[in-house]
Amino acid sequence: MRGKERNGRRIAILGVGNPILGDDGAGPRALEIIKGELGGGVRHLGNVYVELKEVCSGNLGLMEELIGFDEAIIIDSISAGPGIEEGEIIELAPEDLGAGGEPLNAHAADFASSYGLYRSILESSMPSKVKIYAIAIRDPEGFCDRLSQKAEAAAHAVASRILRELFNGRAE
């Protein structure tokens, strides 16, 4: 099993969503932009190891991708609604996503419960710092492999922010 056997900080950047469900693919799109700028899915920036992954699964599946990292940056979509405009970018921490302890289910397990469960069992093998970039979208109504203009713009904006943080050493 993968562990924290390497020297230096390890950062996972995950683009979460389904690229064939319209704007739900905003996370993977942002990841694709970052990958293009970094020139690949794995990169060493000084003594910082950065790994980029597209993830299309629920929160429990997401947790498995975080094992062995010190920090994680997650790009996902959320539903726009009252008070949240389509295309808006919201920065969140795990504790912002509910108190945890609510009923867990494999596909829609809430992030806080999943993270709490994995942290309680795997302890230091899970990242202690997690930052979530949530892109507000309209709920997808059918299959489509293109983003709306608002989601595309938001994906670019998130990618720029993350790249700035990485190169300025502020990904913490």
């Binding site: 979460v16 969503g17 389904n18 469900l21 739900d24 996370g27 299309c56 699964s57 629920g58 929160n59 996902d76 979509s77 959320i78 539903s79 969140l92 912002d96 996503l97 509910g98 609510e102 009923p103 289910n105 596909h107 829609a108 397990a109 809430d110 992030f111 806080a112 419960s113 999943s114 979530i132 949530a134 979208i137 709920d139 997808p140």
Partner: peptide, 9 residues
Amino acid sequence: ATHALPGQL
């Protein structure tokens, strides 16, 4: 869809 954030069900 897989966008489970904030995960309320």
